[in-house]
Amino acid sequence: MILDWLSAALIAAGALLSVIGGIGLHRMPDFYCRLHAVGITDTLCSFLILGGLSFQAGLSLASVKLFLIFVFLLFTSPTASYSLSHSAWKWGLNPKGVEDHAPSAKIKVRE
């Protein structure tokens, strides 16, 4: 019973995070900021939803499969995200709003 409520709370929090990430995809000013909004839905949201579902499944093969899905997402999402941002950088896309702030202006970034 308690486990049911706990898993329901985890899944609900994950769904809320996923909707917030979707809104963030539209509120952020440029591509590099949208990368962070997608980062939310890739890490904590998927972790909460898969964890809540595995609480419902209990100790079985289903929760092992959920754990494997989680591990795959954990290992592939930073690689996909890095290759996206790196190819955007190589293509010449400059981040917006960076020049106004002090610590970044002192560093020579493009070599």
Partner: peptide, 11 residues
């Protein structure tokens, strides 16, 4: 660094 939301490595 990339996995932590709010910071992403570019190059």
């Amino acid at each position: 660094v990339t996995l932590t939301p709010g910071s992403a490595s570019i190059e």
